[in-house]
C-alpha cells in the first residue's frame, strides 16, 4: 500500500507539474491540457489496452498478495487466540 502511495504521489506531482507547464508556457487552457493528458489513455487499441492492464496488474499484484497474506495471518492469529 505504502509503495503504491509513493508511486501515486510522484505521478500526481509530475502530472500537475506538466499541466502547469502547459498552462503557463504554452498557453493552453487548463481543461484542454487535462484532456491532452487523459486522451492517450482513453483512446487505446486492444493491444495497448492489454499491455496497460498487464502493467497495472503487476503493479497491484504484490500489494494485493501481501494484503491477503496479512489478513490470513491476522485471522489465524485471532483464532489461535480464541482457542485457548
Amino acid at each position: 500500500m505504502k509503495i503504491l502511495g509513493i508511486a501515486l504521489l510522484i505521478l500526481v506531482v509530475l502530472i500537475s507539474f506538466s499541466l502547469y507547464v502547459d498552462v503557463t508556457f504554452l498557453h493552453v487552457s487548463l481543461t484542454n491540457s487535462i484532456k491532452n493528458v487523459l486522451n492517450p489513455f482513453i483512446v487505446m487499441d486492444s493491444v495497448e489496452l492489454f499491455i496497460f492492464v498487464l502493467f497495472l496488474f503487476f503493479l497491484v499484484a504484490p500489494s494485493l498478495t501481501s494484503y491477503i497474506r496479512k489478513r490470513k495471518k491476522g485471522s489465524n492469529n485471532e483464532k489461535k487466540q480464541q482457542q485457548p
Binding site: 508511486a7 510522484i10 505521478l11 509530475l14 506538466s18 493528458v37 497495472l56 503493479l59
Partner: peptide, 20 residues
C-alpha cells in the same frame, strides 16, 4: 526492489502524458 514496478509504471504513464 519492491518499488521497481510502481516507478516503472509511473515513468511509462508519464512518458505518454508529458506532452500531447
Amino acid at each position: 526492489a519492491r518499488l521497481v514496478v510502481p516507478i516503472g509504471v509511473v515513468i511509462l504513464i508519464l512518458s505518454i502524458a508529458v506532452a500531447s
